[in-house]
Simulated scan of single mutants.
Amino acid sequence: MNVFKSHFRFNKRQRNGIFFLLLIIVIFQTSFFLVDFSSNKPTDFSQNEIADFKKEQDSLINIAIQESKPKIFPFNPNYINDFKGYQLGMNVDEIDRLITFRKSGKFINSIKQFKIVTKVSDSLLNKISPYFKFPDWVTNNNNTSNISFKKIRKEDIEVKDLNLVTSSDLIKIKGIGEKTAERILSYRDKLQGFTFSDQLYEVYYLEKEIADKALEYYKVLLKPNIQKININTASFKEVLSIVYIDYELTKKIFNYRDEVAEIQSLDELKKIDGFPIEKFNRITLYLVAE
C-alpha cells in the first residue's frame, strides 16, 4: 500500500509546477472557444483584376481541352483503314468508297481527288486535309506542273542491276521519291550490296507494292563481293555490325563459341537456342568458319 501511495506524493515545487501547467491549459482552451480567429475583412479585388483572372482561367481551360484532343500526325490518305477513318470522323460509306478505289489499284494524289472519291463534307476535309502527306513524286509533280501525272512505261526505263542503280534511276519508279531512294542506297551500302533481289523488301518504310514495281525494272544481276568475318576470331562488335544480327543473338553466338572452343562449320549456328533459321542464308553471307 505504501508503494502505491508513493506515486502520488509530490513536494511543494512539483505541486506548483502542476498547478501552472493546468492553468496554461485552461487559458488556451478558453481562448480557443472565446476568441474568433477567422478574418472577416473582405478582400478587395478590382474589376480589372477579376477580368484578368477570368481570362487566364479561360486560357488554361482551352489549353487543357486542346491537349486532351487526339493528336493527328501527317499521313498518306491512300492508306486510311476503317479504324483510322473513324478516328478522323469519316462515316462508313466514305471509308468504303476510299477502300474500293484503292483496291482497283489507283492512288489518290491530291486533296481535290480525295474529296471526289470519298465525298466527305467540306468541313471535315478542311479539318483533316492539312495533315495529308503525299509521296515526294506527287508533291514535286504538283509544284512544277499542272499536267496530270503520266505513268512511266516499262520500255522507258532501262533494266539495270539493283547494285548499280542510282538515286535518279530509282525515282523513276512511281512511289519512290528522293528520300526513299536515299534509304534504299543507304541500306544497300550496309549490306555491302544486294545478294538477293528480295532484300529490297527489307528497306524501312518501303511499301511492298512499290518494291514489287521497282523489281520489275531492277534486279540483282551480279552478286557483290562481301567481306566475310571469321566467326572464330571476330570481335563482339564485328559480329554485331552484321545487319541481320542483334545484340541478344550476338551474345548467344559468343556463348556457344566459348562452349565449343571453335566453330567447325557455320551449320553449327543452327544449334543455338533461338537462332533465326529463316535468316541463316543471309547471316552466313557475312561469316566464315576457319
Rank of each mutant, 00 (worst) to 15 (best):
K219I: 14
L191V: 05
K54L: 15
D52Y: 03
L185I: 15
L206Q: 10
I171K: 01
P130C: 14
T284G: 00
N255W: 01
N81M: 01
T233Q: 15
F280S: 03
G105K: 04
N78T: 05
V243Q: 13
D36R: 13
S110I: 09
M90P: 02
Q29V: 12
I157R: 06
N81D: 14
K213R: 10
D96R: 14
I63E: 13
K151E: 15
P276W: 07
I152S: 11
P276D: 09
Q199S: 04
I108P: 00
G17A: 15
P276C: 05
N230I: 05
V165Y: 03
K179F: 00
K150M: 14
Y256W: 07
L266N: 06
G177L: 01
N76P: 01
I272P: 01
T144N: 15
I157G: 03
R153M: 09
F254W: 10
F45Y: 13
P130G: 14
N76H: 04
I50Q: 03
S241W: 05
K252C: 02
Y201C: 08
I242N: 00
K12T: 11
S265P: 06
K69R: 12
D198T: 09
N76L: 01
I242G: 03
V220P: 12
K112V: 02
K190Q: 14
A51S: 13
R15A: 14
K251G: 01
S39N: 12
I229G: 05
D189K: 10
T233V: 10
K252V: 00
K151G: 12
D93N: 14
Q47E: 12
N109L: 10
K179H: 02
S168V: 01
R13V: 13
K133E: 07
V165F: 00
K174R: 08
G274S: 12
K54V: 15
E182D: 09
Q66I: 11
Q66L: 11
N281E: 15
K119R: 08
I116N: 13
I157S: 04
T100I: 11
I111F: 06
T139C: 04
E209K: 02
I272T: 08
Y187T: 10
F194I: 07
E207A: 06
L221R: 10
K115S: 10
F20L: 13
S39P: 03
N255L: 08
E238S: 14
W137I: 13
Y247S: 13
K190I: 06
V239W: 03
R153Y: 10
E207H: 04
K251S: 05
D161R: 04
L221H: 03
L185R: 01
I27W: 02
V3T: 11
N91A: 12
K12G: 06
I176H: 01
H7Q: 08
P70T: 08
S186I: 07
R9H: 09
L191S: 07
L269H: 03
A211Q: 00
E262V: 08
I176Y: 00
V239M: 07
V239D: 12
I63M: 08
P130Y: 12
D136S: 09
K279D: 15
K112E: 13
N163M: 02
S197Q: 05
E49S: 07
I99K: 15
Q66D: 15
N40H: 11
E209M: 07
K271Y: 07
I242Y: 09
D52G: 02
V239G: 02
F10C: 12
K160T: 01
I231E: 08
K55S: 10
I229Q: 08
L221F: 09
R188L: 09
L170D: 10
E290P: 01
L200W: 00
L170Q: 08
A211I: 13
V92R: 09
